[in-house]
Write a protein that binds this DNA or RNA. Structure first.
Lengths: 110, 110
DNA sequence: TTATTTAATCGTATATTTGCGATATACAAT
DNA sequence: ATTGTATATCGCAAATATACGATTAAATAA
């Protein structure tokens, strides 16, 4: 056996996959874009704009929070969300690395 | 209403999400890396290397084919897979655009 | 021809995701 | 204190994803 069998996946594989999972739903992509687009942070204006119920949007926001792609803070009755640039850039790096590493091995075999 | 309510998501949102979905499982990330790593295309050597059953790997390969991230051709009893660079680069572009566009709107609001 | 090898597909079980309405919570306004 | 507003959470249903063993199909080797 030339290459060893994996018992489990590597941290990088898991990281890339879980980031990809966080943005694997069009609603979450749209939410991120909306948060970035607005001048300043927004809250449930997202609900106004998306074709989804408030509770569903809230769930997607929770997912994005879990992935640390956004930060949220409660301001009165409103919740204010914004992009977590630190994580965002971390993932951009992981992605770029993945693309470049893969490309560098392009042997044009078929 | 300053921004219009979406009836559905945009093509770009759907494209980005479905690409992300394709690589949202560590097995599929590992498979892509393995295919890129090997000198020339490989087939079920992937099974040897991953902590998954042959049928499961086959299913993941099918997903990657569906997303057109890999190409496959049958060579005798063996199936030979390789990266579909055209799609790969298309998605890299979509990604980079997403990252850059989002970043350019960084207002550091919170 | 018969056996072997390789890989796709089928059937099935289980887990996760997605979505929504209803409810709860927490603050603001009256 | 009561009412209204914003948003998170609960409970549930439906759809999708993941995994595996068994089976099938197709090519090669014996």
């Amino acid at each position: 056996m030339a290459y060893p069998k994996k018992v489990e996946f590597t941290k990088k594989e898991n990281d890339l996959a879980s980031f990809a999972k966080a943005i694997s739903h069009p609603a979450r992509v749209a939410i991120l874009k909306e948060i970035a687009k607005r001048n300043g942070c927004i809250c449930g204006e997202i609900v106004e704009v998306l074709p989804l119920a408030q509770s569903t949007v809230s769930q997607h926001l929770k997912e994005l929070l879990k992935a640390e792609l956004i930060k949220g803070e409660i301001d009165g009755t409103k919740s204010c969300y914004c992009i977590n640039w630190k994580t965002f850039e971390k993932f951009e790096k992981i992605f770029t690395e993945f693309f470049n590493k893969t490309k560098s091995q392009n042997q044009n075999c078929c």
